[in-house]
Structure formats: C-alpha cells, structure tokens
Design a binder for these strands. Sequence first.
DNA 1: ATGCACCCTCCCCCCGGGGGAGGGTCCAGG
DNA 2: CCTGGACCCTCCCCCGGGGGGAGGGTGCAT
Lengths: 270, 270
Amino acid sequence: MHRGGVLAIGEFSRLTHLSVRTLRRYHDAGLLEPAIVDAASGYRYYTAEQIPTAQVIHRLRELDVPLPDVQRILRSPDPGARAALVADHLRRLEAELDRTRAAVVSLRRLLQPAQPPLDVELRAVPATTVAAVEDDVALDDVLAWYAGATAELDAAVDAPTGPPGGLYDNALFEDGRGHVLVHRPTAAPPRVGRVHPVTLPAVELAVTTHAGDHDDIAVTYGQLGSWVVANALAVAGPVRETYLVGPRDTTDPTTWRTEIGWPVFRVTDR
Amino acid sequence: MHRGGVLAIGEFSRLTHLSVRTLRRYHDAGLLEPAIVDAASGYRYYTAEQIPTAQVIHRLRELDVPLPDVQRILRSPDPGARAALVADHLRRLEAELDRTRAAVVSLRRLLQPAQPPLDVELRAVPATTVAAVEDDVALDDVLAWYAGATAELDAAVDAPTGPPGGLYDNALFEDGRGHVLVHRPTAAPPRVGRVHPVTLPAVELAVTTHAGDHDDIAVTYGQLGSWVVANALAVAGPVRETYLVGPRDTTDPTTWRTEIGWPVFRVTDR
DNA sequence: ATGCACCCTCCCCCCGGGGGAGGGTCCAGG
DNA sequence: CCTGGACCCTCCCCCGGGGGGAGGGTGCAT
C-alpha cells in the first residue's frame, strides 16, 4: 500500500474527501495527474503535495465551476490572474442568485390565490423614427448589454421626446439569444458610435403596465398573454417595453412603471 | 394555426417563454398535458388557462426543483400544502447557499500564497467510556442530526468531565453517507433515549486545532493530511473532533477552537 | 396545387457524476 | 512460496434536463 510517502488512490481519497471515481475522472480530464502512474498495472500514486491542489478543485467544484474552467484556473501560474478568474465566477454566482431571488418573488405572486385582473388596452401605434442601439445578445448578457447601450444612448440624445424603450425578439426567450434594441424617441436621431436612427414599424399593440421592479415581470407577461388569447389575437413580432418610470427617475422600486406592448393581429375566427 | 382560442405549441412557447422542446418534454413527463392532442397528426394544442401553470413550472425549474417534485407541487390541490412544499425547497436552497459561502471562504484561504505552518501533535489516547449518540447519517443531514443529538446528549449528561466530541466515518465523505457519533465524557454514562455508553478504542492521534467557524475546516483537514503523510503515517479509522470552544461557549466565532484528531499508524518504511 | 412555416418522432450529445461487471495487483499471514 | 482479501484497473450503462439535427408529416394562404 505504501512506497516511500506515495499514496494509493484510496488513501488519497480519504485525505482529500474526493471519491476514488472522481479522482480517476480528474486524471482522465487532465485536471489532477497522479505523481506516478505504474505503467504495468495502471495504478495511480499521489503525493502529499497534491493535497492542496485537490482541495482547490474540490472547492471550485462546490461552486459549480465547470471542469475546463477549473483547469484554466489551475494552469494560470500568476496568483493575480487566478484570483481574477475566480472573482469572475463569483460574479456569475451572484447573478444566478439574483435570478433565484426573482424566481421566488414571481412564484409568490403566482401562487397567490387571488390574481387581480389586468388592465389591457389595444393601441394602434404609428411608425416612429428613434435613436437606437441594437445587437444580437444572449439572454444571460442582456442586463449588462442594456446598461451599456442605454448609457451610450443617453449620452448621444440631447432632447428626448419621450421615455426610453426596448424591443425584445422572441428568439431571446425561446433560444436564449436574439435581437435586442433599446431606443429613445427624439426629433433628429443622431448617428454616433452604436447609436443610429431606426424606424420602428407601425403595429397594433396589446398594452399593459407592470408596476415595481422586474423580478416578477414574467408574471405580467403571462397575464398579458392570456388576455391576448382570450381576445382572439395572435402575437406578431418582438415585444416592446417602455420605461415610464424607472431607476433613472427614482430609487423607490415600488413607483417604477414599465409599459409592456405585445404586437398582435386579429385572428380570423374559423 | 388557430382553431377557436386554442394555441399551437409554437404560439404557446412564445407566450410562456418556454422552448418548444421543453414543452414537449413536459408533456412526456406528464407535467403539462396539452388541452388537446390531435390523434391523427400528434399536434399539441394548449389553452390560455394553461399559461399560469406553465409559468409556475418555469419558476420552479429556475429554482432547480426536480421535475418529479414540480409534479408533486402542481398535483397538491391545497394551497397550504403547496406552499409548504415550496418552502421546503427554499430551505434546501438556503442550505446550498451556506455551502457555497463556506466554499468561497475555504477557497480564499487556499489561494492565499503564504500558508502558515500547522501545529500538529502525535498523541496516544487511551480507551475511554463516554455517553454517546450514534447513527448512520447522510452528509447533507449531518448538521441537523448533530443539533438533535447534542441537545439530547446535553440533557442526559449532568456532570461532563470534558468538552463534547464527535467521530466521523470516512465513508461519510467518500460515499456521502456514514457512521457518525457524538459524545460527552462523563464518569457514569447514562442510558436514556438514544444516549448510551460507548467505549472508544485506544488510538494514536495526529492532533491539530482549527480556529474559527467550520466554513474552512476542510482546509485544515487537508493540511493535517499532508502532515500525516510527510511523517510516514497512514490513516486508520474515523476522524475525531473535539469541540474545545464552540457556539455553546461564546457567540464570537473567531474564538472557537476545534481539535481534529486523525487516527494513524506508523507505516513500516520499505 | 404549391410553397412554406410549422409540427411530429427519434437518436445522439452535453455535464459531472454513480453503479456495477469482470479482471488484475499488492501484500500480510501462514 | 501460496493464498485470501483488500485494493486497483477499465469499460459500459444510468441519471437529469436539456440542445442539435435528421427525416418526414400538416395546416393554410396564395
């Protein structure tokens, strides 16, 4: 079992609290190579110096860092770069936590027995030319992208003639990636950096207003969807949000108001 | 595409932000049966009334509730029972969050360039008879089990002759389930409820002391493991912890002290 | 009647593990 | 030196909750 301070896989497992199976997997993945592999028998032998490495892997895995990322972290020799990669992951965990919190809020509202009825208005919107920033964005990156885009938009537009808005492609929610556009109406849309004029087509919108922060905005979306179907309409095109009152206006989330407009067309009943 | 307020799967997907694939999977799993399935074509048709259900599923999945549990929640008609099941899951999320926090603390300590050397003592411990509570426990349940067992132990032992301690089977960490024993030394161990006398065998222990709360105790375990190997010893039996200073003594975690003793035997060098 | 968007099923892949089969190795005791 | 048992090896299948893509049927407007 022992040859001069070298550990068989079972012993190493006991010392690191990683299962034998998992240690073998980490070997195959090139994450944690045994110090010695007996060529004849295939036996893996580890040294005590490998214990800290095994522990780092263990903790990273507890944080759900994917194995390739763990490898990248271990391979980066500079402690600074290593810390940066770890911090990067911690930010991702934080974002996930936010999503979890939002899901809990939504769920609470959904499970409430009495759902207040929704005020929905059918509104014909003419074609409008606005200053816009647009791109193909992954769902996970939408928030960060939105922050950058609005900042650029705000800097480029001097005299807005209305509140900012956004268009969100359905593919964003169905495939996790889609076209996103944020805009601000203004008399003469400039062309600066990513900001450029865009003419939004005329549409008929089913419009409702969501109150509060966006944690449970998906619930309002669902209710609007129900209304659309109940009124024999079908969805046609990217959803339009208008930020009537938002964090730019007040820090009190309960006063925030977001208008949700779903482009619709009348279904010829048959 | 439309037949009297009934939605094809694509339309329903757009309305609920669930992918078509996922909706089909939920159908197969019996989670969300379409209102109508065309017998000839196999086409699935949904109604607007199913949107809230789809949303509940979506939120639960965002909370990583397994599909069978989602089904259980949906099937429970009583809102109270439903809320209890959800609350149960939220507790599990909370526990996971604790583990994540601990992993971050451990990682921070592991990635610190300078590791202070560990004070380890080799100590021969004679056989002792103690009052104990023991059971086979899953790793996830250890904390809850420990709380119950110590409470029972404290109530049963009047005149302890030393601090409380615990024995943790290696299988607990390797297989996620193992034998756990908590004890308190006393002159005449009683036999009350789960509390009974146990004679702990004499062992040679490699002993070190962990300072602070247990978030990063795994790191100390690893360092002790390194020391054990470096001193040509091998692990033999369940680890022994002794809670010198703990939450029972003070609320300040920085003053807590846990003695970790790893049973060892000398390796005949060859 | 034709085009085309939509829908169907079926199979394989992803990740990070676990279970178990079937067989080789190490080593202490006799 | 032999034997038994603990230990180790590889290989294949399974899990959950999806995604990609092939190959083929349907619904409906023009």
